[in-house]
Structures are given as structure tokens and as C-alpha cells.
């Protein structure tokens, strides 16, 4: 690398983010609104509190807004496709859109997913519980983790239940003869939408497991918080997406 790229020592120092050693007043992992790389009123090279957390939230937010657009595209396609048809030989306008009755189990799945969002939120809250976190960060046991873990596990369970439920729903549809390749767009779209949302949830479940492991392996409070926090927001978003998609599939057939 040429001379113009000499990194200043600060970079090196900053490379280890997070906590450790004596607590500088401005590095408490929780409380106190930090904002990006705002280093006013404290020496250079010190990220404000929550700097990393906020960065990850930002990234996630943008990622999800893109994802939202992705689903919007699918939904608009759903409506366009619903409205297309052709004139049959008697010049009657016919469409091949035979709206399918969604399997009732979907209602159950939806309930499960929304519930899982609740448990997820509780788990998340635990990790930002001021006193516990202070203790953790001072190295006196891990109360936050102890409280959060069960809720995470619960969420994991519910998430898996939802996925199984979706699978069952597919099975039932196949029984009724609605295949992915059926010449019926509404069933095409049902599989497309539920399938893609399902994939998102699989990712979510994996992330959840990772976060769970992280709770016990990650050394720094800040990172444990980030792990759970990110997964939580992702999970909530998927819940909301599903709520909308569900309404779409049930009421807009």
C-alpha cells in the first residue's frame, strides 16, 4: 500500500471494539444514547456507547427495507396476475384464476408466529436490562443471559412449529390437488409466497440458534446484545410480513 494509505495508530486501537479492562465513563454498553461516530466531547478513537449496536441495526434496517420491496414486487405481481385473462372462443372473458381456500391450519400457524414474536421481544428486553447488564459487564455472573436464554429457546420452538405447520398446509393442498405446477396461478402464487417467506424463516431459525450459542460463547456484553437484538428485529419483521401475506392469501384470493 502506498504512502497515502498510512493508517494512523487510532485505527489499530479502535479495531477492538467493545468492553474490557477498566470502564471508561463513556463506554458503558447500555444506557446513554450514543450516535454513530459522534466523538465530540471525548477523545478520538472512542466510539460512543452502542456505536456497534446501532450500526448493526442500521444495516439490518436497510437490508429489510430491500426485502420488503422484494415482497411488494411479489404481491403486485399477484394482483396483476389475478387480473389477467383472455377471451375464450365465445368471446367471453375468462380467467384461469381459481381462488383456493387456504388450509385452516394457517390460522394456527399465524397465531404461533405472532406469539413467537412476543417471546422474542421478551428475550431481547432481558439483554438490555440495565442492572443485569451492568453486573455482566463488571463480570459478576450472567443474569441477563440466564433470563434471556429460555425465552430464546421458546421462540426457537415456536418458529419451528410454524415451519412444520406450513409444511402441513402444503401437504393438505397437495392432497386437494393444488400443485405448484398446477395451471392455476393462485396456487402458483400460494407456493411462491409461502415458500419464500418460509425460506426467510429458516434463515431466521438458524440465526436464532447462532444467537443462542452466542449468548454463551461471546465474551463481550455488547456482542451478546447485538446478536440477540439483530435476530429479534429480523424476527419481528418476518412476523409482520407474514401477517400481511396471510391477509393477502386469505382475503384477496
Amino acid at each position: 500500500m502506498p504512502a497515502t494509505f498510512t493508517r494512523n495508530p487510532v485505527d489499530v486501537e479502535r479495531n477492538d471494539t467493545g468492553i474490557g479492562g477498566k470502564p471508561p465513563y463513556d463506554r458503558r454498553p447500555t444506557g446513554g444514547g450514543g450516535d454513530g461516530e459522534n466523538w465530540e466531547n471525548h477523545p478520538q478513537g472512542r466510539g460512543g456507547p452502542r456505536e456497534l449496536l446501532i450500526r448493526y441495526r442500521l444495516g439490518l434496517m436497510f437490508a429489510l427495507s430491500g426485502d420488503l420491496m422484494f415482497f411488494v414486487a411479489l404481491v403486485s405481481a399477484f394482483f396483476v396476475r389475478q387480473s389477467t385473462g383472455h377471451f375464450d372462443v365465445y368471446n367471453h372473458y375468462t380467467t384461469d384464476w381459481r381462488s383456493l381456500a387456504v388450509p385452516p391450519i394457517l390460522w394456527l400457524n399465524t397465531a404461533v408466529l405472532l406469539l413467537s414474536s412476543v417471546t422474542m421481544e421478551i428475550a431481547r428486553r432481558q439483554l438490555f436490562h440495565e442492572i443485569d447488564v451492568m453486573e455482566e459487564w463488571l463480570g459478576l455472573g450472567r443474569p441477563a443471559v440466564k433470563r434471556a436464554a429460555p425465552w430464546l429457546i421458546a421462540t426457537l420452538g415456536l418458529g419451528l412449529t410454524f415451519l412444520v405447520g406450513q409444511w402441513v398446509a402444503w401437504e393438505q393442498l397437495v392432497q386437494q390437488g393444488y400443485l405448484l405446477s398446477a395451471p392455476n396461478p393462485s396456487s402458483n402464487f400460494f407456493y411462491l409466497i409461502t415458500g419464500i417467506h418460509g425460506l426467510h424463516l429458516v434463515v431466521g431459525v438458524l440465526a436464532l440458534m447462532a444467537a443462542l450459542m452466542g449468548l454463551f460463547t461471546l465474551k463481550k456484553v455488547e456482542f451478546r446484545q447485538i446478536a440477540v437484538d439483530s435476530v429479534a428485529w429480523y424476527w419481528h419483521t418476518m412476523g409482520i410480513f407474514w401477517a400481511f401475506l396471510f391477509v393477502l392469501l386469505v382475503f384477496f384470493q
Binding site: 430491500g66 420491496m69 422484494f70 383472455h86 405448484l180 405446477s181
Partner: peptide, 27 residues
């Protein structure tokens, strides 16, 4: 962020038209 995901969706649907017997685009 807003545009490419839409293309992704479209490409996915076209692919499934070609291979999974759906008919999003084939009249």
C-alpha cells in the same frame, strides 16, 4: 436497494416458469 430486489423477484418467477411449470408470463 429498491430496484434490484424487484428484478430478483421477476427473475425467480421466470425461472420457475421455465422449470417448475408455473405460468406467470406464458399466456
Amino acid at each position: 436497494l429498491l430496484a434490484f430486489v424487484v428484478l430478483l423477484a421477476a427473475v425467480g418467477m421466470l425461472f420457475s416458469d421455465r422449470h417448475f411449470g408455473t405460468n406467470f408470463f406464458i399466456p
